[in-house]
Design a protein around this nucleic acid. Structure first.
Lengths: 234, 234
DNA sequence: CATCGTATATTCGTGGACGAATATACGAGT
DNA sequence: ACTCGTATATTCGTCCACGAATATACGATG
Protein backbone atom coordinates (compact mmCIF):
# COMPACT_ATOMS: atom_id res chain seq x y z
CA UNK A 1 0.00 0.00 0.00
CA UNK A 2 2.65 2.59 0.81
CA UNK A 3 3.83 4.02 -2.49
CA UNK A 4 1.97 3.23 -5.65
CA UNK A 5 4.66 3.13 -8.30
CA UNK A 6 3.38 5.68 -10.80
CA UNK A 7 0.27 7.65 -10.04
CA UNK A 8 -2.34 7.38 -12.78
CA UNK A 9 -1.48 9.74 -15.61
CA UNK A 10 -3.91 12.15 -17.28
CA UNK A 11 -3.94 9.93 -20.35
CA UNK A 12 -4.87 6.96 -18.19
CA UNK A 13 -7.71 8.94 -16.66
CA UNK A 14 -8.93 9.96 -20.08
CA UNK A 15 -8.92 6.30 -21.09
CA UNK A 16 -10.91 5.31 -18.02
CA UNK A 17 -13.42 8.09 -18.51
CA UNK A 18 -13.95 7.06 -22.13
CA UNK A 19 -14.48 3.45 -21.18
CA UNK A 20 -17.23 4.51 -18.79
CA UNK A 21 -19.32 5.13 -21.88
CA UNK A 22 -18.83 1.63 -23.26
CA UNK A 23 -16.04 -0.92 -23.86
CA UNK A 24 -13.65 0.01 -26.67
CA UNK A 25 -10.28 -0.83 -28.16
CA UNK A 26 -7.39 1.60 -27.66
CA UNK A 27 -7.42 3.13 -31.11
CA UNK A 28 -11.10 3.93 -30.85
CA UNK A 29 -10.54 5.53 -27.47
CA UNK A 30 -8.00 7.84 -29.04
CA UNK A 31 -10.39 8.69 -31.89
CA UNK A 32 -13.13 9.68 -29.47
CA UNK A 33 -10.79 11.75 -27.35
CA UNK A 34 -9.48 13.60 -30.38
CA UNK A 35 -12.91 14.08 -31.84
CA UNK A 36 -13.98 15.75 -28.62
CA UNK A 37 -10.91 17.96 -28.56
CA UNK A 38 -9.54 16.37 -25.40
CA UNK A 39 -6.19 16.14 -27.14
CA UNK A 40 -5.88 19.87 -26.51
CA UNK A 41 -5.78 19.38 -22.78
CA UNK A 42 -4.32 15.87 -22.55
CA UNK A 43 -1.27 14.71 -24.47
CA UNK A 44 -2.23 11.68 -26.55
CA UNK A 45 0.56 9.65 -28.18
CA UNK A 46 -0.15 6.28 -29.66
CA UNK A 47 3.19 5.10 -28.39
CA UNK A 48 2.04 5.86 -24.86
CA UNK A 49 -1.58 4.86 -25.22
CA UNK A 50 -0.99 1.13 -25.51
CA UNK A 51 1.48 1.12 -22.64
CA UNK A 52 -0.97 3.01 -20.49
CA UNK A 53 -3.83 0.65 -21.27
CA UNK A 54 -1.59 -2.32 -20.51
CA UNK A 55 -0.67 -0.78 -17.17
CA UNK A 56 -4.31 -0.20 -16.36
CA UNK A 57 -4.99 -3.83 -17.17
CA UNK A 58 -2.10 -4.94 -14.95
CA UNK A 59 -3.51 -2.87 -12.13
CA UNK A 60 -6.95 -4.38 -12.63
CA UNK A 61 -8.54 -1.05 -13.54
CA UNK A 62 -9.60 -2.29 -16.96
CA UNK A 63 -9.91 -5.76 -18.37
CA UNK A 64 -9.81 -7.26 -21.84
CA UNK A 65 -13.28 -8.19 -22.95
CA UNK A 66 -11.98 -10.19 -25.89
CA UNK A 67 -10.37 -9.69 -29.23
CA UNK A 68 -12.17 -8.71 -32.36
CA UNK A 69 -11.22 -8.76 -35.95
CA UNK A 70 -12.87 -6.92 -38.81
CA UNK A 71 -11.86 -8.27 -42.16
CA UNK A 72 -8.14 -8.87 -42.04
CA UNK A 73 -7.31 -5.72 -40.10
CA UNK A 74 -4.92 -6.13 -37.19
CA UNK A 75 -6.46 -7.82 -34.22
CA UNK A 76 -8.04 -5.49 -31.71
CA UNK A 77 -8.41 -5.99 -28.03
CA UNK A 78 -11.52 -4.45 -26.54
CA UNK A 79 -11.25 -3.31 -22.93
CA UNK A 80 -13.89 -2.55 -20.37
CA UNK A 81 -13.53 -0.59 -17.17
CA UNK A 82 -13.78 -2.42 -13.84
CA UNK A 83 -15.30 -1.28 -10.57
CA UNK A 84 -11.78 -0.59 -9.29
CA UNK A 85 -11.21 1.47 -12.43
CA UNK A 86 -14.25 3.65 -11.80
CA UNK A 87 -13.14 4.17 -8.23
CA UNK A 88 -9.62 5.14 -9.27
CA UNK A 89 -10.93 7.54 -11.91
CA UNK A 90 -13.14 9.36 -9.47
CA UNK A 91 -10.62 9.41 -6.67
CA UNK A 92 -7.76 10.67 -8.75
CA UNK A 93 -9.94 13.29 -10.40
CA UNK A 94 -11.00 14.58 -7.01
CA UNK A 95 -7.39 14.88 -6.05
CA UNK A 96 -6.46 16.75 -9.21
CA UNK A 97 -9.31 19.22 -8.82
CA UNK A 98 -8.83 19.77 -5.12
CA UNK A 99 -5.06 20.13 -4.92
CA UNK A 100 -2.96 22.48 -7.04
CA UNK A 101 0.16 20.64 -8.22
CA UNK A 102 3.58 22.17 -8.57
CA UNK A 103 4.42 22.40 -12.25
CA UNK A 104 7.28 23.85 -14.26
CA UNK A 105 6.11 25.81 -17.29
CA UNK A 106 8.85 26.49 -19.80
CA UNK A 107 8.25 30.21 -19.86
CA UNK A 108 8.75 30.44 -16.12
CA UNK A 109 12.06 28.64 -16.50
CA UNK A 110 13.01 30.98 -19.32
CA UNK A 111 12.22 34.03 -17.20
CA UNK A 112 14.40 32.76 -14.41
CA UNK A 113 17.35 32.77 -16.82
CA UNK A 114 16.43 35.70 -19.01
CA UNK A 115 19.02 38.07 -17.57
CA UNK A 116 21.51 36.18 -19.72
CA UNK A 117 20.06 38.25 -22.57
CA UNK A 118 20.31 42.02 -22.73
CA UNK A 119 17.25 43.94 -21.55
CA UNK A 120 16.78 45.33 -25.04
CA UNK A 121 16.77 41.95 -26.67
CA UNK A 122 14.47 40.60 -23.98
CA UNK A 123 12.03 43.44 -24.63
CA UNK A 124 11.98 42.63 -28.33
CA UNK A 125 11.43 38.92 -27.76
CA UNK A 126 8.70 39.55 -25.23
CA UNK A 127 6.81 41.76 -27.60
CA UNK A 128 7.05 39.07 -30.26
CA UNK A 129 5.64 36.63 -27.75
CA UNK A 130 2.84 39.04 -27.01
CA UNK A 131 1.86 39.18 -30.66
CA UNK A 132 1.74 35.40 -30.88
CA UNK A 133 -0.27 35.14 -27.68
CA UNK A 134 -2.79 37.62 -28.98
CA UNK A 135 -3.24 35.64 -32.16
CA UNK A 136 -3.69 32.44 -30.22
CA UNK A 137 -6.24 34.08 -27.97
CA UNK A 138 -8.23 35.37 -30.90
CA UNK A 139 -8.26 31.89 -32.40
CA UNK A 140 -9.27 30.28 -29.12
CA UNK A 141 -12.08 32.79 -28.62
CA UNK A 142 -13.35 32.20 -32.13
CA UNK A 143 -13.30 28.44 -31.65
CA UNK A 144 -15.15 28.71 -28.37
CA UNK A 145 -17.76 31.01 -29.85
CA UNK A 146 -18.30 28.68 -32.77
CA UNK A 147 -18.86 25.68 -30.55
CA UNK A 148 -21.10 27.45 -28.08
CA UNK A 149 -23.11 29.72 -30.31
CA UNK A 150 -23.16 28.03 -33.69
CA UNK A 151 -23.14 24.44 -32.54
CA UNK A 152 -24.94 24.97 -29.26
CA UNK A 153 -22.48 23.05 -27.15
CA UNK A 154 -23.00 23.70 -23.44
CA UNK A 155 -20.21 25.43 -21.53
CA UNK A 156 -19.99 22.32 -19.42
CA UNK A 157 -17.96 20.59 -22.10
CA UNK A 158 -15.67 23.54 -22.66
CA UNK A 159 -14.42 24.33 -19.19
CA UNK A 160 -10.85 23.40 -19.97
CA UNK A 161 -10.70 25.70 -23.00
CA UNK A 162 -12.16 28.54 -21.01
CA UNK A 163 -9.61 28.00 -18.31
CA UNK A 164 -6.72 27.78 -20.75
CA UNK A 165 -7.89 31.02 -22.34
CA UNK A 166 -8.07 32.76 -18.97
CA UNK A 167 -4.49 31.75 -18.19
CA UNK A 168 -3.30 32.84 -21.59
CA UNK A 169 -4.94 36.17 -21.02
CA UNK A 170 -3.14 36.57 -17.72
CA UNK A 171 0.15 35.70 -19.33
CA UNK A 172 -0.44 38.22 -22.10
CA UNK A 173 -1.26 40.88 -19.52
CA UNK A 174 1.91 40.23 -17.60
CA UNK A 175 4.05 40.21 -20.72
CA UNK A 176 2.41 43.41 -21.96
CA UNK A 177 3.19 45.20 -18.73
CA UNK A 178 6.77 43.99 -18.85
CA UNK A 179 7.23 45.13 -22.44
CA UNK A 180 5.86 48.56 -21.59
CA UNK A 181 8.10 49.00 -18.58
CA UNK A 182 11.16 47.88 -20.48
CA UNK A 183 10.32 50.16 -23.39
CA UNK A 184 9.68 53.34 -21.42
CA UNK A 185 12.50 52.66 -18.98
CA UNK A 186 10.28 52.50 -15.91
CA UNK A 187 11.37 48.95 -15.12
CA UNK A 188 13.03 48.95 -11.73
CA UNK A 189 16.59 47.71 -11.95
CA UNK A 190 17.01 48.24 -15.66
CA UNK A 191 20.32 49.95 -14.99
CA UNK A 192 21.61 47.01 -12.98
CA UNK A 193 20.50 44.61 -15.68
CA UNK A 194 22.26 46.59 -18.37
CA UNK A 195 25.40 47.01 -16.29
CA UNK A 196 25.46 43.36 -15.32
CA UNK A 197 25.00 42.39 -18.92
CA UNK A 198 27.78 44.63 -20.22
CA UNK A 199 30.36 44.08 -17.53
CA UNK A 200 29.38 40.64 -16.23
CA UNK A 201 29.40 42.11 -12.72
CA UNK A 202 26.89 43.34 -10.24
CA UNK A 203 27.42 47.13 -9.98
CA UNK A 204 29.42 48.28 -6.97
CA UNK A 205 26.57 50.01 -5.18
CA UNK A 206 24.53 46.78 -5.05
CA UNK A 207 27.25 44.77 -3.42
CA UNK A 208 26.26 45.95 0.04
CA UNK A 209 22.75 44.51 -0.13
CA UNK A 210 21.90 41.49 1.99
CA UNK A 211 20.93 39.27 -0.90
CA UNK A 212 24.23 39.80 -2.66
CA UNK A 213 26.36 39.11 0.37
CA UNK A 214 24.37 36.02 1.22
CA UNK A 215 24.92 34.83 -2.32
CA UNK A 216 28.66 35.30 -2.14
CA UNK A 217 28.92 33.10 0.93
CA UNK A 218 28.48 30.08 -1.26
CA UNK A 219 31.64 30.90 -3.15
CA UNK A 220 34.66 29.06 -1.95
CA UNK A 221 32.51 26.24 -0.61
CA UNK A 222 33.23 24.23 -3.71
CA UNK A 223 36.67 25.64 -4.18
CA UNK A 224 38.61 23.18 -2.05
CA UNK A 225 42.21 22.65 -3.06
CA UNK A 226 42.84 20.29 -5.91
CA UNK A 227 44.85 17.16 -5.27
CA UNK A 228 45.14 16.28 -8.91
CA UNK A 229 44.52 17.80 -12.29
CA UNK A 230 43.92 15.79 -15.41
CA UNK A 231 42.46 16.18 -18.87
CA UNK A 232 39.90 13.78 -20.23
CA UNK A 233 38.07 13.65 -23.51
CA UNK A 234 35.53 10.88 -23.95
CA UNK B 1 22.15 19.23 -38.32
CA UNK B 2 18.48 18.64 -39.15
CA UNK B 3 16.85 17.15 -36.09
CA UNK B 4 18.73 17.43 -32.84
CA UNK B 5 17.64 14.45 -30.77
CA UNK B 6 16.45 16.12 -27.61
CA UNK B 7 16.21 19.85 -27.49
CA UNK B 8 18.13 21.32 -24.57
CA UNK B 9 16.06 20.99 -21.40
CA UNK B 10 15.45 23.78 -18.90
CA UNK B 11 17.78 22.04 -16.46
CA UNK B 12 20.49 21.96 -19.12
CA UNK B 13 20.03 25.68 -19.72
CA UNK B 14 20.25 26.36 -16.01
CA UNK B 15 23.49 24.39 -15.92
CA UNK B 16 24.92 26.37 -18.81
CA UNK B 17 23.89 29.69 -17.32
CA UNK B 18 25.52 28.78 -14.02
CA UNK B 19 28.74 27.78 -15.72
CA UNK B 20 28.90 31.19 -17.37
CA UNK B 21 29.87 32.51 -13.95
CA UNK B 22 32.76 30.11 -13.52
CA UNK B 23 33.61 26.42 -13.95
CA UNK B 24 31.99 24.11 -11.37
CA UNK B 25 31.21 20.50 -10.63
CA UNK B 26 27.60 19.29 -10.94
CA UNK B 27 26.78 19.19 -7.26
CA UNK B 28 27.93 22.76 -6.78
CA UNK B 29 25.84 23.87 -9.74
CA UNK B 30 22.79 22.40 -8.03
CA UNK B 31 23.66 24.14 -4.76
CA UNK B 32 23.88 27.52 -6.46
CA UNK B 33 20.65 27.03 -8.34
CA UNK B 34 18.81 26.03 -5.17
CA UNK B 35 20.35 28.83 -3.18
CA UNK B 36 19.01 31.29 -5.72
CA UNK B 37 15.59 29.71 -5.69
CA UNK B 38 15.82 28.57 -9.30
CA UNK B 39 14.57 25.20 -8.15
CA UNK B 40 11.15 26.83 -7.90
CA UNK B 41 11.00 27.42 -11.63
CA UNK B 42 13.22 24.59 -12.89
CA UNK B 43 12.94 21.00 -11.75
CA UNK B 44 16.27 19.89 -10.35
CA UNK B 45 16.80 16.18 -9.65
CA UNK B 46 20.24 14.86 -8.94
CA UNK B 47 19.41 11.77 -10.92
CA UNK B 48 18.85 13.95 -13.97
CA UNK B 49 21.57 16.48 -13.35
CA UNK B 50 24.48 14.17 -14.03
CA UNK B 51 22.86 12.76 -17.15
CA UNK B 52 22.18 16.26 -18.41
CA UNK B 53 25.75 17.38 -17.81
CA UNK B 54 27.05 14.30 -19.57
CA UNK B 55 24.81 15.04 -22.54
CA UNK B 56 26.04 18.59 -22.66
CA UNK B 57 29.60 17.29 -22.65
CA UNK B 58 28.78 14.84 -25.46
CA UNK B 59 27.36 17.70 -27.48
CA UNK B 60 30.45 19.80 -26.86
CA UNK B 61 28.54 22.48 -24.97
CA UNK B 62 30.58 21.98 -21.82
CA UNK B 63 33.90 20.28 -21.25
CA UNK B 64 35.58 18.63 -18.29
CA UNK B 65 38.28 20.86 -16.94
CA UNK B 66 39.70 18.10 -14.79
CA UNK B 67 38.92 16.11 -11.72
CA UNK B 68 39.44 17.32 -8.21
CA UNK B 69 39.47 15.61 -4.90
CA UNK B 70 39.13 17.17 -1.47
CA UNK B 71 40.22 14.84 1.28
CA UNK B 72 38.80 11.46 0.46
CA UNK B 73 35.44 12.70 -0.75
CA UNK B 74 34.17 11.24 -4.00
CA UNK B 75 35.99 12.47 -7.02
CA UNK B 76 34.50 15.52 -8.65
CA UNK B 77 34.63 16.53 -12.25
CA UNK B 78 34.71 20.26 -12.86
CA UNK B 79 33.12 21.44 -16.10
CA UNK B 80 33.44 24.67 -18.00
CA UNK B 81 31.16 26.07 -20.67
CA UNK B 82 32.39 26.23 -24.25
CA UNK B 83 31.74 28.85 -26.90
CA UNK B 84 29.20 26.49 -28.47
CA UNK B 85 27.57 26.19 -25.05
CA UNK B 86 27.17 29.95 -24.71
CA UNK B 87 25.68 30.12 -28.18
CA UNK B 88 23.23 27.33 -27.44
CA UNK B 89 22.20 28.91 -24.15
CA UNK B 90 21.42 32.24 -25.75
CA UNK B 91 19.74 30.80 -28.78
CA UNK B 92 17.51 28.42 -26.89
CA UNK B 93 16.59 31.09 -24.37
CA UNK B 94 15.55 33.41 -27.18
CA UNK B 95 13.34 30.70 -28.55
CA UNK B 96 11.72 30.02 -25.18
CA UNK B 97 10.99 33.68 -24.57
CA UNK B 98 9.76 34.41 -28.07
CA UNK B 99 7.55 31.40 -28.70
CA UNK B 100 4.78 30.17 -26.42
CA UNK B 101 4.95 26.38 -26.14
CA UNK B 102 1.99 24.05 -25.95
CA UNK B 103 1.87 22.55 -22.46
CA UNK B 104 -0.50 20.30 -20.59
CA UNK B 105 -1.17 21.48 -17.04
CA UNK B 106 -2.77 18.86 -14.84
CA UNK B 107 -5.64 21.07 -13.82
CA UNK B 108 -6.61 21.65 -17.42
CA UNK B 109 -6.69 17.89 -17.94
CA UNK B 110 -8.77 17.49 -14.81
CA UNK B 111 -11.27 20.08 -16.00
CA UNK B 112 -11.67 18.30 -19.29
CA UNK B 113 -12.82 15.21 -17.38
CA UNK B 114 -14.54 16.83 -14.45
CA UNK B 115 -18.08 16.05 -15.61
CA UNK B 116 -17.42 12.55 -14.34
CA UNK B 117 -18.05 14.06 -10.91
CA UNK B 118 -21.36 15.54 -9.88
CA UNK B 119 -21.65 19.34 -10.14
CA UNK B 120 -22.10 19.55 -6.39
CA UNK B 121 -18.98 17.61 -5.63
CA UNK B 122 -17.06 19.59 -8.23
CA UNK B 123 -18.16 22.82 -6.58
CA UNK B 124 -16.91 21.60 -3.22
CA UNK B 125 -13.56 20.50 -4.58
CA UNK B 126 -13.09 23.73 -6.48
CA UNK B 127 -13.70 25.80 -3.41
CA UNK B 128 -11.15 23.73 -1.52
CA UNK B 129 -8.72 24.41 -4.33
CA UNK B 130 -9.49 28.08 -4.08
CA UNK B 131 -8.61 28.12 -0.40
CA UNK B 132 -5.29 26.42 -1.08
CA UNK B 133 -4.51 28.79 -3.92
CA UNK B 134 -5.19 31.77 -1.73
CA UNK B 135 -2.83 30.48 0.92
CA UNK B 136 -0.14 29.87 -1.66
CA UNK B 137 -0.59 33.33 -3.07
CA UNK B 138 -0.28 34.93 0.33
CA UNK B 139 2.91 32.98 0.95
CA UNK B 140 4.33 33.90 -2.45
CA UNK B 141 3.54 37.56 -1.95
CA UNK B 142 5.15 37.54 1.48
CA UNK B 143 8.27 35.87 0.11
CA UNK B 144 8.51 38.37 -2.73
CA UNK B 145 8.06 41.30 -0.38
CA UNK B 146 10.72 39.99 1.95
CA UNK B 147 13.24 39.60 -0.82
CA UNK B 148 12.52 42.94 -2.46
CA UNK B 149 11.92 45.17 0.51
CA UNK B 150 13.83 43.61 3.38
CA UNK B 151 16.72 42.21 1.41
CA UNK B 152 16.74 44.77 -1.36
CA UNK B 153 16.83 42.28 -4.21
CA UNK B 154 16.04 43.94 -7.56
CA UNK B 155 12.89 42.80 -9.37
CA UNK B 156 15.15 41.69 -12.16
CA UNK B 157 15.97 38.52 -10.28
CA UNK B 158 12.38 37.79 -9.37
CA UNK B 159 10.61 37.92 -12.70
CA UNK B 160 9.72 34.26 -12.67
CA UNK B 161 8.11 34.47 -9.23
CA UNK B 162 6.14 37.52 -10.26
CA UNK B 163 4.93 35.72 -13.34
CA UNK B 164 4.02 32.57 -11.44
CA UNK B 165 2.06 34.69 -8.99
CA UNK B 166 0.20 36.44 -11.79
CA UNK B 167 -0.83 33.11 -13.27
CA UNK B 168 -1.90 31.76 -9.92
CA UNK B 169 -4.00 34.85 -9.43
CA UNK B 170 -5.69 34.28 -12.77
CA UNK B 171 -6.37 30.68 -11.89
CA UNK B 172 -7.83 31.68 -8.54
CA UNK B 173 -10.04 34.22 -10.27
CA UNK B 174 -11.35 31.68 -12.71
CA UNK B 175 -11.98 29.10 -10.01
CA UNK B 176 -13.71 31.67 -7.83
CA UNK B 177 -16.08 32.60 -10.61
CA UNK B 178 -16.82 28.96 -11.27
CA UNK B 179 -17.53 28.25 -7.62
CA UNK B 180 -19.88 31.19 -7.43
CA UNK B 181 -21.80 30.21 -10.52
CA UNK B 182 -22.11 26.63 -9.38
CA UNK B 183 -23.22 27.70 -5.93
CA UNK B 184 -25.90 30.19 -6.98
CA UNK B 185 -27.06 28.03 -9.87
CA UNK B 186 -26.25 30.59 -12.55
CA UNK B 187 -23.88 28.21 -14.31
CA UNK B 188 -25.17 27.60 -17.80
CA UNK B 189 -25.89 23.93 -18.36
CA UNK B 190 -26.02 22.94 -14.73
CA UNK B 191 -29.24 21.05 -15.40
CA UNK B 192 -27.66 19.07 -18.23
CA UNK B 193 -24.67 18.27 -16.04
CA UNK B 194 -26.86 17.04 -13.25
CA UNK B 195 -29.09 15.04 -15.57
CA UNK B 196 -26.15 13.55 -17.39
CA UNK B 197 -24.59 12.62 -14.10
CA UNK B 198 -27.71 10.98 -12.69
CA UNK B 199 -28.93 9.16 -15.77
CA UNK B 200 -25.69 8.72 -17.70
CA UNK B 201 -27.44 10.22 -20.72
CA UNK B 202 -27.59 13.53 -22.46
CA UNK B 203 -31.12 14.88 -21.88
CA UNK B 204 -33.53 14.44 -24.75
CA UNK B 205 -33.82 18.11 -25.68
CA UNK B 206 -30.06 18.38 -26.30
CA UNK B 207 -29.95 15.50 -28.72
CA UNK B 208 -30.94 17.71 -31.61
CA UNK B 209 -27.95 20.00 -31.32
CA UNK B 210 -25.24 19.84 -33.96
CA UNK B 211 -22.45 18.96 -31.59
CA UNK B 212 -24.31 15.98 -30.22
CA UNK B 213 -25.22 14.53 -33.57
CA UNK B 214 -21.69 15.02 -34.87
CA UNK B 215 -20.47 13.17 -31.83
CA UNK B 216 -22.78 10.23 -32.39
CA UNK B 217 -21.47 9.71 -35.90
CA UNK B 218 -18.37 8.15 -34.46
CA UNK B 219 -20.41 5.43 -32.85
CA UNK B 220 -20.51 2.26 -34.84
CA UNK B 221 -17.24 3.08 -36.52
CA UNK B 222 -15.42 0.83 -34.11
CA UNK B 223 -18.30 -1.56 -33.76
CA UNK B 224 -17.57 -3.86 -36.65
CA UNK B 225 -18.83 -7.42 -36.22
CA UNK B 226 -16.74 -9.70 -34.09
CA UNK B 227 -15.20 -12.74 -35.72
CA UNK B 228 -14.11 -14.23 -32.48
CA UNK B 229 -14.61 -13.72 -28.79
CA UNK B 230 -12.16 -14.89 -26.19
CA UNK B 231 -11.18 -14.20 -22.61
CA UNK B 232 -7.64 -13.45 -21.60
CA UNK B 233 -6.09 -12.61 -18.29
CA UNK B 234 -2.39 -11.80 -18.39
C1' DC C 1 35.53 8.68 21.75
C1' DA C 2 31.67 5.87 19.77
C1' DT C 3 27.63 7.01 17.36
C1' DC C 4 24.30 9.43 14.86
C1' DG C 5 22.48 12.79 11.87
C1' DT C 6 23.42 15.60 8.05
C1' DA C 7 26.02 17.51 4.15
C1' DT C 8 28.89 16.34 0.27
C1' DA C 9 29.05 14.07 -4.32
C1' DT C 10 27.98 10.65 -7.67
C1' DT C 11 26.29 6.18 -9.92
C1' DC C 12 22.94 2.91 -11.27
C1' DG C 13 18.65 0.38 -12.48
C1' DT C 14 14.13 0.60 -13.86
C1' DG C 15 10.14 2.07 -15.86
C1' DG C 16 7.79 4.97 -18.77
C1' DA C 17 7.25 8.12 -22.89
C1' DC C 18 7.14 8.29 -27.61
C1' DG C 19 9.01 8.34 -32.48
C1' DA C 20 9.08 5.24 -35.96
C1' DA C 21 8.05 1.14 -38.04
C1' DT C 22 4.73 -2.40 -39.37
C1' DA C 23 0.69 -4.31 -41.57
C1' DT C 24 -3.72 -4.13 -43.65
C1' DA C 25 -7.87 -1.95 -45.91
C1' DC C 26 -9.99 1.00 -49.00
C1' DG C 27 -11.35 4.74 -52.08
C1' DA C 28 -9.86 7.70 -55.89
C1' DG C 29 -7.53 8.63 -59.91
C1' DT C 30 -5.26 7.17 -64.33
C1' DA D 1 -6.44 -3.26 -63.04
C1' DC D 2 -2.72 -0.69 -60.67
C1' DT D 3 -1.01 2.30 -57.43
C1' DC D 4 -0.93 5.95 -54.32
C1' DG D 5 -2.47 8.30 -50.40
C1' DT D 6 -4.86 7.97 -46.22
C1' DA D 7 -7.23 5.70 -42.37
C1' DT D 8 -7.14 1.78 -39.31
C1' DA D 9 -4.67 -0.50 -35.48
C1' DT D 10 -0.74 -1.96 -32.95
C1' DT D 11 4.26 -3.12 -31.68
C1' DC D 12 8.99 -2.17 -30.91
C1' DG D 13 13.33 -0.08 -29.54
C1' DT D 14 15.51 3.59 -27.60
C1' DC D 15 16.20 7.32 -24.86
C1' DC D 16 15.57 9.82 -20.75
C1' DA D 17 13.91 10.99 -16.05
C1' DC D 18 14.65 10.08 -11.55
C1' DG D 19 14.24 7.32 -7.12
C1' DA D 20 17.31 4.96 -4.52
C1' DA D 21 21.55 3.40 -3.30
C1' DT D 22 26.41 4.25 -2.37
C1' DA D 23 30.40 6.27 -0.15
C1' DT D 24 32.75 9.59 2.55
C1' DA D 25 33.34 13.56 5.83
C1' DC D 26 32.29 16.06 9.77
C1' DG D 27 30.17 18.25 13.71
C1' DA D 28 27.36 17.42 17.74
C1' DT D 29 25.91 14.74 21.67
C1' DG D 30 26.00 11.80 25.57
Amino acid sequence: MPGRRTSTSPLALAVLSTLVERPMHPYEIAQRLKHRGKDQSIKIRYGSLYTVVQNLADRGLVEAEGTARAGRRPERTVYRITAAGRAELVERLRELVRTPAKEYPLFEAALSLVIVLSPDEAAGLLSERLRVLEKEMAAARAALADLMVAQGMPRLFLLESEYALALKQAEAGWVRAMVTELADGSFDGLAIWRAWHETGEVPAEMRQADWFRADQELDGAGQTPLDQESEDSA
